[in-house]
Design a binder for these strands. Structure first.
Lengths: 223, 223
DNA sequence: CGCACCCTTGATTAGCCTCAAGCCAGGTGG
DNA sequence: CCACCTGGCTTGAGGCTAATCAAGGGTGCG
């Protein structure tokens, strides 16, 4: 995946990432370092975060448009590189690159569904744990976890905007988890103890390999 | 969009639509008549509906996999046709077809974000109205609305599974709307009075043309 | 007739929100 | 150096929203 070191762009924390350049309708970019999130801001100021974007993730022009519908904002200082294949790349390599990008898009979609389930069907405690497990797993996948605790450059407000809860309630939920000893927040980092238990408690399903236990649909009625 | 009348498939209400055939990794299909929905079923039986699929919508193999992650289920009797271009189609037409499919995918994505906002940031009443407005608009776009009221082959349970609410509460919300006179349910159909007001009340933003009112992001803090 | 399926309603409880206030750390300027 | 401010975290009190439990009604169908 390190085939395209070229044209690094930097953004400060809080900046909106725009890839809407006229010619760049299909522009794609990969995060090298830092965090971002994709979100919508409603006219009354309420915000909903759709996804967190970590190092290794792809941002495309589609995802990064207007904040009124869907925009990308840097949560920390951010470095991205262009994801287009070089002009001087052979066909096989181009094919590999676009395969990687397709795969990334598929995972992004799955995460969106996970997020919908979180907000639609999980309680506050479950949501928080579920999201933390997802973020921890993704950071591990790209080798950004050393030791037991995970660096999370995220305020409780951001958490609230992602999970559809109020800041106050996020705070209380974290407090409860802290008192149970399962989740410890400290200076922008989290430690998750006994992940298996946490995963069960929050109905978290790892996205690493398959093992998806199906359920049979009850028949839906017709009206 | 009527360029491919070939091989109609039918499914009964309640059937799961599977497009996972080995060779059909990229198979896509268009709904000719009937409704379906994309959903996940959790092991404990809870369900979350991600999207409703109406006539004219595309179902791809990606969307229709296992019900434990993402599956498609017919809500009514369903007829679909293959969306692949013919072998005997000229290049320009193929290009048009794939353009249409890309556009459809983009709209589907936008609707997913709308759905996230509904569940994360709207109250029960707002959610119900917002979803009804979306469905009405989409049905109008494909010419399936005649007169004031819209046919909705949807039980309150399906509504609840889509909006992350309990059946009971959906019922009470509908009752309230009925009493206000703005929304009338009758035998699988709805009538929406004064849509402009309903749209304002539910923060609904039509997806027909642009007019997206942006908001400025407050800066996000770093930890 | 009896069963399924869906809608409806009441009573009670729990979960989450809002308002409000206080704390702490870091940064800035006088 | 200290006063002040800002941004983020924490906590209490009170209230509303939505879930749960429970029961009953209507309709279509075998």
């Amino acid at each position: 995946v390190r085939a395209f070191w070229r044209r690094v762009e930097r953004f400060p924390a809080g900046a909106q990432i725009r890839l809407e350049g006229v010619a760049a309708a299909h522009k794609q970019v990969i995060i090298v370092s830092g965090w971002a999130c994709q979100l919508r801001i409603l006219r009354d100021g309420r915000r909903q975060i759709f996804a967190f974007l970590l190092p290794g993730d792809v941002i495309d022009a589609h995802a990064a448009a207007s904040l009124g519908t869907r925009g990308v904002v840097a949560l920390t200082r951010l470095e991205v590189v262009n994801a287009e294949p070089y002009p001087g790349m052979d066909l096989a390599e181009r094919e590999r690159v676009s395969e990687v990008l397709r795969e990334a898009a598929a995972q992004r979609e799955t995460r969106l569904y996970d997020h919908l389930v979180r907000m639609g069907r999980l309680s506050a405690k479950e949501r928080v744990v579920h999201l933390l497990l997802e973020l921890a797993e993704r950071l591990e996948n790209v080798g950004l976890v050393k030791g037991e605790s995970v660096r999370l450059p995220i305020t409780q407000e951001v958490f609230a905007d992602a999970l559809g809860l109020s800041i106050v309630h996020i705070n209380r939920t974290l407090k409860q988890l802290r008192q149970e000893g399962s989740v410890v927040f400290k200076l922008g980092s989290v430690t998750l103890h006994d992940r298996a238990r946490l995963a069960a408690l929050s109905h978290y399903q790892s996205r690493r390999e398959g093992a998806a236990p199906d359920a049979e649909p009850r028949s839906f009625g017709v009206t």
